[in-house]
Design a protein around this nucleic acid. Structure first.
Lengths: 348, 348
DNA sequence: ATGAAAGCGCTAACAA
DNA sequence: TTGTTAGCGCTTTCAT
């Protein structure tokens, strides 16, 4: 790999000073028409690409933002990053990406790395904003950042999110309206996750409105593929739930599959709802009833806002985007219970 | 935002030279036990984070790789990036990400940006490797890079891919074995895309084996949501296809949906196959028959190989990973044709 | 074991 | 309009 040219070499070839090259390249100062033409020609012929590292060191600007998400494999985050990416590109910002795998240590070290790379701002989704080392080091630096997906708190940093609690409540209310009285919530392993906690609160809000006892939350590991076992266990209970509220769509999809595998029909035997609104949910059969987070919009707003904080010193802001309940085919009324000795009546 | 400390300031506070700080931080030279302890303490107390830009300029190493893909919104690419990310993190490399949206200009400018940022290597998926400005500037620099997904060609750069042509052929053969004789291929707007071309060739290979006339390829825009119209048109033909080979899973999902919307049943009325093997395909009803590309593995290999080229000067290599035909419920035998006047016989 | 000083590639006063 | 020069924050000879 041949080593790259420097501005010095280009200056020599053009017979001018490095300052002139710099001015010609960046339009940062007066350059005569002929000189400009000359410099342009030399640059083109030599294939010179100015070393951004040098420039960054001098100007103390990197035009780079860091993005930290739990995982690209969940489309909700991939979509958000796609939104960020589009805005960054439009504003000539680079995107440095890292994923934490929901591991707090990695959140922390990723932020440290970003800091050392002198990103000008950060967009991130942390596992739990209440208690995040990553967030602590970040706040102490004063670097602008935007929290994405994490619920807004009365703090002084920028966030973009939906109201997880209301959304969960609205969703579960729909289940209760359909007549369900025995429900269960299945939560991803991260009960510590602040979003999970909010959704859980929303779930309980809904139950309370119907004066139902809060049921215990079933936690499952994401990698854990024993869904069949979990669901079977739940189902052995004589008072097995007739509806499942899953804390994410990904989880709901696994739960639906497990239900089918043990011979249950969704929604005739049991209803399932998810949370997130990933695009694919609509294509499932049954299509997934869920609360939609506008992930790409969130990413776009996060990036736009961050850049405005960086470039124009805009103040911190919190945006709560509306969620949307997307009704699908995965819910329905609970099955009519057949009690022994009871006469089954079929209406024509 | 308070401005960050420099090594100079830390040296002053510790009462030693900047060289000593550097040596203590990096273990790059002898430092006495006491001095080390002193320096460690000062650094911790001051929250000093060495400015990587300075270091990068001096060492001429950025420990950064650039990743360029068409779109994060297609899980096939998001998964690949997840694989890259994991390996990069494990080897202390940073990932600079950009997406092209299948636009060649953006491919080019993203590569230029990466080059100016002095990434040490690149992993990318280009629209068409035959004729890519981006690839041209890249090759001319001598910077190591790995092409991902793009079919291997007798060229001198590293690639990781599957044999798109064989995979497409194998997939379509299965359709023909099922009895289909009138088939259509639906290709994403990028007939220019080299993968699309390979898959098309595989499609035609299969037809040829069965001595069938090659049918024309139907091109559709990705954003184009007129699938219903397209499918309706195709269907008005008295010799409408009984099976569709779609060049990507994403496309296949849209096609299936359109078919359902016009009242066709998959696979009873018509069979559909996709290409890529995105995870969600298995959860659809009917589940999608497809050729699986091991995207995450491809990303991991690409990153590992690139890093070995950078760090250990490994030679260029081409890896062709095996594809897998994943049978689903979206295909079946063609419907038996009912001809007017013919007696329909029903076997018990 | 430590320090002084040069220099990585660039930009931006300041001079001319 | 152009050139000279200092210096961004770090590492790394080379002395000591």
């Amino acid at each position: 790999m041949k080593k790259a040219l420097t501005i010095k070499e280009v200056a020599k070839r053009a017979g001018v000073s490095t300052a002139t090259i710099s001015r010609a390249m960046n339009g940062s100062g007066p350059v005569s028409g002929e000189t400009r033409a000359l410099v342009d020609r030399v640059i083109r012929n030599s294939g010179f690409r100015p070393n951004n590292i040098g420039r960054q060191l001098k100007t103390a600007r990197t035009h780079t933002i860091g993005v930290l998400i739990p995982s690209l494999k969940n489309p909700i985050f991939a979509d958000a990053v796609a939104g960020i990416e589009r805005i960054a590109e439009r504003n000539s910002y680079n995107v440095l990406l890292a994923s934490s795998g929901y591991i707090e240590d990695k959140e922390f070290s990723a932020v440290e790395t970003f800091l050392k790379s002198r990103v000008e701002g950060l967009i991130l989704t942390v596992t739990n904003e209440e208690n995040s080392q990553a967030l602590d080091s970040l706040t102490s630096t004063g670097l602008p950042f935007v929290l994405m997906f994490n619920p807004v708190k009365p703090t002084s940093f920028s966030t973009v999110s939906i109201d997880n609690r209301s959304a969960a409540c609205a969703l579960v209310e729909r289940l209760l309206e359909l007549g369900h009285r025995r429900t269960a919530m299945i939560a991803g392993k991260l009960t510590e996750s602040d979003r999970s906690i909010e959704r859980q609160a929303g779930y309980e809000d809904a139950l309370r409105k119907y004066q139902l006892e809060p049921t215990k939350i079933i936690e499952v590991g994401f990698e854990n593929s024993d869904f069949v076992e979990i669901i079977t266990n739940l189902n052995n209970d004589p008072n097995a739930p007739t509806a499942y509220f899953c804390s994410t769509d990904i989880l709901a999809i696994s739960v639906m599959r497990a239900l089918v595998q043990i011979g249950k029909h969704v929604p005739n035997d049991v209803s399932v709802v998810g949370f997130d609104g990933i695009a694919i949910g609509e294509f499932l059969t049954p299509s997934l009833s869920t609360a939609v987070q506008p992930a790409e919009d969130m990413g776009e707003w996060a990036a736009q806002h961050l850049i405005e904080r960086i470039d124009n010193d805009h103040p911190v802001a919190n945006l709560v985007l509306p969620y949307r309940i997307r009704p699908g085919e995965s819910w329905g009324p609970p099955p009519t219970k057949l009690v022994l000795g009871q006469t089954l009546q079929i209406r024509e």
